[in-house]
Amino acid sequence: MNSFDSSNGEEMSIDSAAQTNSLASVASAHTAARQPGNAPMGSGLEARGIHAWFGKHHALENVSLDFASGTVTALIGPSGCGKSTFIRTLNRMHEFIPSAAMAGEVLLDGKDIYSKGTDVTKIRLQIGMVFQKPNPFPSMTIGENVLSGLKLAQLKMSNKEDLMQECLERAGLWNEVKDRLGAHAGGLSGGQQQRLCIARALAVKPKVLLMDEPCSALDPGSTLRIEDTIGQLAQTMTIIIVTHNMQQAARVSDYTAFFLSEGGPGNMIEVGPTNEMFSRPRDQRTENYVSGRFG
C-alpha cells in the first residue's frame, strides 16, 4: 500500500512555513490554557507493542503509546498509516473484522484488556467510541438514543431525565433538541447526529473516549461545536482522536502522535506535546508532514 496516496492534501496549505508557524501557535495557545495531565480524573490507557494484521497484511507494527489521564491525544498521519486500525485495537473493535489479528497489550488501569477471560462488553463500557460517520439508532428517539448504551449493557437507570440532560449538555446538543427528545434521531442534521452519538457514548460514563475522525463528515460549524465539546470533556476523561485535519489536532490536543507507513506496515514515528510536534518535530518525516510537504 502506498502511504503517500493520501487524499487529504487539500486540507494543507502550500505555504508550509507559515502553516507550521500558525499551527504551532494555535497548539501552544491551547496547551497554555490547559496543561496536560493536570486533570487526572479519567483513567490512563497504555498501548504496548501493538501489531495488527488483516489476514497476511501487516497493517501496524510495534506501536507503544501512553495516554495519560485527562489528556487529549491526536493521532495524525496520511491515509493507510494504521491510525484507525490502532484506535480500534484500543477498545477491541478491531476483532470484528474477519481475519483481523493483533499482538501486544492494551492496559486499562494496569490490566490488559485482551487477557483471557475478559468480558469485552465491560471493556467497551469503559472505553467509548465515536465513529467517523454519525450512526445514531434511527428506530429510537433522540432521548432513547442517549440512554441506549445503558439499556444495551443492562445497567440500571436512576434519574433518566437528569442523565439525558447532562449528557446532551456535555455534548453541546441540549439546547437544540430539548423540545423534541421524543422525535426520531434520523431527523437531525449530520452535526447534530454526531453530537448525539457523543452524548450516547457519555451516558455510560466511560473513562476513555476514542474518536475516529469524528468531524470528517461534518461542516465547519458542526466541527467547531464538536471541538468545543472535546475541550469540555477532556477535563473528566481521556480522549484519543484520529484526525486528518492538522488544524484540528493543533486546536484540541495536548499530545500528538504521528503515524506513517513507508510501503510496509504502519509505524508510530513520533509522539510529543502538540505544540512541539508542530513547531520543532524531532523527525524529518514528521516535519515534512506537518508542514504540508506531503500527505
Binding site: 467497551r124 445514531p136 439508532f137
Partner: peptide, 18 residues
C-alpha cells in the same frame, strides 16, 4: 449501527435487539 451497539458495550443479543 452494529458497530455503534458493540461500541456501547452491547452483547450480541443486545445488539440484535437494538
Amino acid at each position: 449501527r452494529i458497530q455503534a451497539a458493540y461500541a456501547l458495550g452491547a452483547t450480541k443479543w443486545g445488539m440484535i435487539k437494538a
